[in-house]
């Protein structure tokens, strides 16, 4: 049982935290701007590389560079919206979706040009896990990821339910035309959406870089499970996306647990779990767990 917790459940929660942070932006952009943002993974990569450069320049630990990574990623997201998505806002959504594929490639190519194609790490060396009750082994970075994610979830919940901007965002997600009739500035809400989505995905990018390494496909490789998490939680439901991310992350890890001596699924196929879950959700509960927007 303790092996299950140490090697499957805790890594699952950690992976789920990363998916959750990325999925919030995807869900909010889907809910408010009404399009599937396929460049969101590469926005995550931008955050990871911005942190890497700050680590190189300042020598700070990676988690201390989060504010810089957030700032850089937010600027990139806002420029991306201004240059590529805003001009397409009045056109059918498919134009913006296709544009987001182009933006994804543009971001990845730019990252490859600036930082090269080799994998990088925030620090070298080995971190011994922390041991609790003699048996429970958790890497300190995993504790940090989980604590950060829980704090962000509380902050996000407060922001969306108690602040004027948060309520305006939920109103625009419900009905943008009515929001405009009520005098809400939809462009301000859209900017807030990009800032929150970009900030959270930048943090997720740093978590991925700390857990494995920083490479140019870092975010793109996580796009499918992040979309699955957003769908599972319900489109336009950020808290749903967080829960969805945790479920997908935990499901991916525990499906490789050897129940009767053999893994349920070969570990190399575990990423297919997100895809299977996404298809199941779309067929049986397209509005997601938190009753989000129907696609």
């Amino acid at each position: 049982m303790i092996d299950f917790i140490n090697y499957y459940l805790i890594p699952g929660v950690t992976l789920g935290s990363i998916y959750a942070l990325g999925a919030v932006g995807i869900s909010m952009i889907f809910g408010i701007l009404r399009f599937a943002h396929f460049a969101h993974g590469d926005l995550m990569t931008v955050g990871a590389y911005a942190a890497l450069t700050t680590v190189w320049v300042t020598g700070l630990p990676a988690l201390a560079t989060i504010p810089v990574a957030i700032a850089v990623t937010c600027i990139v997201a806002l420029l991306m919206d201004k240059w590529f998505y805003k001009p397409l806002r009045a056109l059918p959504t498919i134009y913006t979706v296709i544009a987001s594929f182009g933006v994804a490639m543009l971001l990845r190519s730019s990252i490859q040009l600036i930082w090269g194609t080799d994998s990088q790490v925030y620090f070298t060396g080995f971190q011994k896990p922390m041991i609790f009750f003699d048996t429970l082994r958790i890497a300190s970075r995993h504790i940090q990821f989980i604590v950060f994610t829980v704090l962000i979830a509380f902050a996000l919940h407060y922001f969306l339910n108690k602040t004027r901007t948060g309520k305006s965002m939920r109103a625009v997600a419900d009905d943008p035309e009515l929001a405009s009739i009520c005098g809400l500035k939809t462009e301000t809400v859209i900017r807030a959406t990009w800032i929150i989505g970009a900030a959270l995905t930048a943090i997720a990018g740093i978590f991925v870089g700390l857990d494995t390494d920083v490479h140019t496909n870092l975010g793109w490789n996580l796009l499918l499970p992040m979309f699955a998490a957003a769908l599972l939680g319900g489109i336009g439901k950020p808290m749903g996306a967080m829960v969805g991310g945790l479920i997908i992350g935990i499901a991916e890890e525990i499906c490789t647990y050897p129940i009767f001596g053999e893994s349920l699924i070969e570990p190399s196929y575990k990423s297919a779990v997100a895809f299977v879950l996404m298809v199941i959700i779309l067929i049986f509960r397209p509005q997601g767990l938190f009753k989000g927007r129907l696609l």
Binding site: R164, K167, S168, R170, A171, A173, D174, D175, E177, L178, A179, I181, C182, G183, L184, K185, K291
Partner: peptide, 26 residues
Amino acid sequence: ACVPQTQNIFPSLSVMENLEIGTYAA
């Protein structure tokens, strides 16, 4: 202020939040 014929509330927001939204721009 305008009240459209249909789709004139924010269904996922509470009644209180719907009323509050009316004050934001005014």
